[in-house]
Design a protein around this nucleic acid. Structure first.
Lengths: 342, 342
DNA sequence: TATATTTGCTTAAACGTTTAAGCAAATATA
DNA sequence: TATATTTGCTTAAACGTTTAAGCAAATATA
């Protein structure tokens, strides 16, 4: 039953007694092929269950119609939503995506890049691992002359397109909100400064405090890898201070969850004793008790914009990469963990 | 700077004044090439920053070294963990994966299959969408003669390899546990019967009740699409009964979460008034209040086994597909939502 | 009616690799 | 020393497509 030999363009050509070239043109609706021939080709193609060999056309055309995607993990609502929307947008234009995960590891990320280049992708859309400091591997992508687009976790130094939210302003949104709730000692469990987005959140936090004439207290500003586990540890550290904060702004929802667990276990009233704000608007922020105030990063828009940016490159002959940022405004979603007044 | 023309085997051959064939063999460590030549080839390859063109070798060899993966969504701990482990195992043998999401839609799934076949994948590993009843598209994969492996959401009728957990036994684990906690009216919010795994969970539930001499009450057995939203609705429905259940076993964690929200909002004490059990051991089950008892599906093992099953096929000349099940034992993780005695 | 243009194809080469077949030189064996 | 085997390559063709160049027939234009 299963006819193991796959149907090729030649098989169709033989049936109709025309050349393979004519078949190829007919299938691509070339204007120089008669309607009659086109119809015949399509009919035979269907009869023989013809499926174009993507490898052959990619080889001949010099493009694979594949886009490589690198994310720290797919198991997060933010990244999976970005990827899903990216995929939709790219599918429309005939591109497929290959998703790879770095698991926040620099080494894995390098291997992913090699894999994607090896697979002859037409472009790479990536969000960098926490660990990544050395940009050599990303330079490799650029030197191959294929478009590179970064989102969320980017690097100015690479001079490529970037799509993300305004992290600096987001910190202002959060601090403004907490001040309005009456908080005076606002701590920040931030990400590593070497990552641009976390650095911007820290800068925003610092400047927002200044704006409200609140002192910047170094023991209230902590760097973290923002895992749930580390969120627990850093929160515990804050509780150990002789002068505790009355609000904690955590730069990631998973770490905010860890902080919440510690607060709940210590029977500290949230938000009355300590208000809590996360970042990312992961679905679980609306599931836990109390629900966690967080920042919505517009993941679907980021995904779409990243795809569109790639498509714009793909249409041009030569890739001329330069730093071109698309910065979206974020949105503060106020939930129970910081809603003191009501 | 960016040398746009990529280095090919011919470039290396020209430098060394040997044939491209010799270069190809040298790179593949062919025993008929001298150590001296091999070394020279490797050196020049490195100097010229040679990267093999995967499309060309795939076309020539008739295999792409790509494995297609179809999951309902990546944004779930179960699926992302399965995929990650699958990827690791396949990478070891030189295979890369293309991940696609069906979003539980039959149409999207069909398009995914077309995409993957078009990309000339060497095999497909899939977990079927909730909507999928018609197996015609999956038959298409089989008829192409490439291996198809199903996991979690499978179908006996397709007669292909399947990796999953013992759903029937899992229901017994749950009912046994609830009975031991003193529950007498155990409801089941199950998945759609047409999906094999959910049917097995239902069968297990029914048989386990029988085993404990508990009556099967049709108003306590409800089918659902197992989203959080539907979990809320079905739980509300159960609360409307004049004779409420004292325990609810939900066939999916997301729906269990919805049920939990309704119970919390209705100020019903969990587990004292109504005990709750989910399925899947999603991380949030340990985050919510109270934490939800659930079933650990050994996602990493499922991923590894699926990969190994594919690799076994790939090594054989002819693909001889048949129903070959690998069924793993699941594990009950008891948490607060069903822990009545302590 | 003579020339120009359009239509509808074919021919041939190419994309970059792999591999079967073959050949000369070097080495081993009788 | 004569023959057989091994070593180390080369040659040529192929994987399935696409596309530039070209050509004959049909049609349009002057």
């Amino acid at each position: 039953m299963s006819n193991n030999k796959k149907t090729t363009i030649k098989d169709i050509a033989n049936v109709l007694n025309i050349s393979p070239a004519a078949v190829s043109k007919a299938l691509h609706n070339d204007s120089r092929i008669s309607a009659k021939t086109k119809e015949a080709v399509r009919r035979v193609a269907k009869d023989l269950n013809y499926q174009p060999n993507h490898l052959a056309s990619a080889l001949r055309k010099g493009k694979s119609n594949l886009v490589g995607v690198i994310v720290p993990r797919t198991n997060s609502n933010f990244f999976s939503s970005v990827v899903q929307n990216m995929e939709e947008e790219l599918n429309k234009e005939g591109y497929n995506i290959i998703i790879t995960q770095s698991n926040e590891s620099y080494n894995k990320e390098c291997r992913n890049i090699d894999t994607l280049l090896f697979t002859q992708v037409d472009g790479i859309i990536a969000s960098m691992a926490n660990e990544t400091i050395d940009l050599q591997y990303y330079e490799k992508i650029k030197s191959k002359g294929i478009p590179l687009i970064l989102f969320d976790r980017g690097e100015n130094d690479l001079n490529v397109d970037y799509i993300g939210i305004n992290d600096y302003d987001s910190s202002h949104l959060i601090v403004d909100h907490l001040v309005e709730q009456g908080c005076k000692r606002i701590a920040h469990i931030g990400g590593y400064k070497h990552t641009r987005i976390f650095n911007n959140r820290i800068r925003g936090y610092v400047d927002a405090l200044k704006k409200h004439n609140l002192p910047l207290n170094s023991e209230l500003l902590i760097e973290s890898d923002l895992t749930t586990k580390d969120g627990r540890e850093k929160m515990t550290q804050l509780l150990g201070l002789k002068n505790r904060p009355d609000a904690v702004y955590v730069a990631g929802d998973y770490a905010a969850l860890g902080a919440l667990q510690v607060l709940n276990e210590s029977n500290i009233k949230i938000p009355e004793e300590i208000a809590l704000v996360g970042f990312g608007n992961e679905p679980f922020t609306a599931m836990v008790t109390p629900t966690i105030t967080s920042i919505n990063q517009h993941s679907s828009e980021i995904g779409k914009q990243a795809a569109k940016t790639f498509l714009a490159h793909a249409k041009k002959e030569k890739v001329k990469q330069k730093l071109n940022k698309i910065i979206l405004d974020a949105e503060l979603i106020v939930r129970d963990s910081s809603n003191i007044k009501n």
